[in-house]
Simulated assay, not measured.
Amino acid sequence: MSNEITEKLKQSSADLLMMSESDYPFEVFLWTDQAKALTTQKLLQLTDHPQDSSVEEVALDYLFRNCAFEQEWHDEQQKQNVKKFQTLVQTLKDNLNEIKVYRIGTIDIDVYIIGKTPSGDIAGLSTKVVET
């Protein structure tokens, strides 16, 4: 079941780049046996970040506020990308429960979109944003 979900996430995030001062692709991950107590410390450990890293939790819609909503100044390519981001957000919401978005670090920020699969594993997407 979890593998089907990661496949759906791969398909819906393919060719999309997270827009910031640099554009980064999305990577799909699946962590089994971690859902019982995913603490901030555990997240930092699983993602190989120092335990004193800065961690911020944001809403899914906030993360995609600049890419999943059409703007009147968008060209055709941007409008198509907005639809792809909307599909990605919907795929996340349809397949994962208790979705949380964590931003780790400052300036070069690692982003993890994490949710629980119906079978109790943790799956999601990681990407990066650069904010100076």
Rank of each mutant, 00 (worst) to 15 (best):
V58S: 07
Q51S: 11
K10A: 08
L63K: 01
A35I: 06
I5S: 10
E56W: 00
H49F: 11
Q45M: 09
S53M: 07
N81W: 02
E98M: 07
A14C: 00
L63V: 04
D75A: 10
Q90W: 00
I99P: 02
Q34N: 11
I99K: 07
S54V: 11
K10M: 06
E98T: 05
T47K: 14
V101M: 03
Y62W: 10
E76C: 02
D94E: 11
L60P: 04
S54C: 08
P25W: 06
L60K: 05
L30E: 10
S20T: 04
S53Q: 09
T6L: 07
K83E: 06
V89Q: 12
V58G: 03
K42N: 09
D23G: 11
W31T: 00
V28R: 08
T87V: 13
K93M: 02
Q90H: 12
C67L: 11
S20N: 04
F29M: 01
D61I: 01
Q41R: 14
K100V: 06
A59Y: 10
Q71R: 14
T6D: 07
Q71I: 02
C67P: 02
W31F: 14
M18A: 10
N81G: 05
E70G: 13
Q90K: 15
Y24L: 11
Q90N: 08
Q41K: 13
